[in-house]
């Protein structure tokens, strides 16, 4: 499996194929293409594991994350991408906002 998470994260494994995305623009596109149901489901799966995930990842050198940890990192970055949707916008995107695609992310990491 390409998006294998470390052992102990089986509960969030079903979200990995969709949300373990390597770049900012990929994560942004995924957010904008998702329904609020999908976003909420991902959020609700990730949030209870927040502390465990970060405690685990913080033990590694950021530049030398093993593949499974890298996948977990990418999923966490997707959580950051959809965080405001759940906490603030209650929608995949704001109602009246400048097109996200027109805001060029020059550092697309």
């Amino acid at each position: 499996m390409t998006h294998q998470l470390p052992a102990g994260y089986e509960d969030i494994q079903p979200y990995a194929d969709t949300w373990a995305l390597a770049t900012f623009s990929q994560r942004q596109s995924q957010r904008l293409a998702s329904s609020m149901e999908d976003i909420t489901a991902f959020y609700q799966a990730m949030m209870p594991r927040f502390d465990e995930v970060l405690t685990h990842l913080n033990r590694f050198d950021l530049n030398e994350l093993p593949a499974a940890e890298q996948t977990l990192m990418h999923m966490s970055l997707s959580l950051a991408q959809i965080g405001p949707c759940v906490a603030l916008w209650r929608a995949p995107d704001q109602e009246n906002a400048f097109d996200a695609e027109r805001m060029e992310a020059i550092l697309d990491d």
Partner: peptide, 22 residues
């Protein structure tokens, strides 16, 4: 220096983008 700080940077980047699009 670690994953937690990277995540905070990413959130900052997302949140600022959303606010400024308003």
């Amino acid at each position: 220096k670690n994953a937690g700080e990277l995540l905070a940077q990413q959130y900052s980047k997302v949140f600022a983008r959303d606010v400024q699009r308003e």
